[in-house]
Simulated assay, not measured.
Amino acid sequence: MTAIPRAIPSGFDSGHRFDVGRRWAASLELGFAARQGVTRMVATRHRGPLRVQRPFHPEGRVGTCHVYLLHPPGGLVSGDALAISARVEAGAQALLTTPAASKLYRADSHGVAWSQHTRLSVADGGQLEWLPQETIAFDGSRGEQVTTIALEGDARCLGWEMMALGRPASQLPYASGRIEQRFRLMRDGAPLWLERQPLDPTHPRFLGRWGQGGASVQATLWAVGLIDETEAIEALREALPASPCWAVTIRHGVMLLRYLGLERNEAWDLCERAWQVLRPRLIGREACVPRIWRT
């Protein structure tokens, strides 16, 4: 079996410092493979507070393997460095999600940043659904999120990322800090979608109509491997509520649905409904909602 891709950046190390050099590292590496038609989690390695619950097969033994990623601290503080990687082999089907929203807390007095690196790879004939619950960034949070997805051959992938900035309901907007997001989606080494987005409330882009426009919630859903992309877009437009907060397009074989608005629940409901529409068209199976989403 191909080795699990490493998401751990160079120099990744742990320590118990409390100055500007503090670094608290955790990593999780997973591997999935088909064994006699059943997807098994065949490899798991972890360091620090990153774990998984035992795999579930709620869609039957030959259905998708559901796995919940657990980070007991529930959020990232200054110096935290998370690295998550997963490899899905040919014929395997995996769905990865989280039990709750992740939180990005305010930076410490030294302004030390946190980091989260995620690398997902899918072999020819494999299928991956990456469906984490939303991330909430507290005012003053500083860090970087890097997501890399490497597809091979006719591998299929559907996923999303959602970010809520600040806590408007508590009158605590995201007014300071800086979060850098980078996303890379490749097929056979060739780029399909590359994106870099700095979230800096002091930059004109943050409030400008040409940029963030003052929106506090954003979400991106992607799907790669749809057979009939035009029909899938029409199905989304019929199923989803009309709103100026979202749009959908196709670029280089990647379907992208974007949300930019003010409501976390609206973004979640939109993405979940879009997943329910797209999943049968992508992997030929109706959506099976992870039960952790309803607890």
Rank of each mutant, 00 (worst) to 15 (best):
A267R: 00
I227Y: 07
R264V: 13
A242C: 05
Q212I: 05
M162W: 04
H46S: 15
R196N: 05
T295E: 12
R106Y: 10
A190M: 11
Q218D: 06
R35E: 15
I149T: 09
Q197A: 13
M41H: 09
P241H: 03
H252E: 15
L240P: 03
R156K: 14
P168F: 00
E195L: 02
I283A: 13
P49H: 10
R281M: 12
T2S: 14
L172H: 07
T148Y: 01
G189A: 02
R279N: 10
V146M: 10
P198S: 04
L50Y: 01
C157H: 08
G143P: 01
I136F: 03
I179W: 00
T44A: 14
R54K: 14
E161D: 12
R167G: 09
A26L: 08
R54H: 15
L192Q: 10
T44Q: 13
P290K: 01
F56V: 02
H71D: 05
V42I: 07
R6W: 09
A274W: 06
G166V: 01
V224Y: 13
G140S: 11
A100P: 09
L185Q: 09
Y68E: 02
F56C: 09
A90D: 08
P168Q: 10
H57F: 00
L256H: 11
V52P: 05
L120P: 00
S216Q: 08
G208A: 15
E180F: 00
G159M: 02
M1T: 09
S85R: 02
R6F: 06
R294Q: 15
V224T: 07
E286S: 15
L185W: 07
W275T: 14
A101C: 11
I136E: 08
T118N: 06
T249D: 03
L165T: 00
P173G: 03
I4H: 08
A26I: 07
W130R: 01
G60F: 03
R294I: 13
H117T: 12
G177D: 02
R258F: 06
G284D: 11
T118F: 05
Q145V: 14
L199E: 01
Y174W: 04
F183C: 14
V277P: 02
L282T: 15
A232K: 09
P280D: 10
A190E: 12
T39P: 05
R119C: 12
P191M: 03
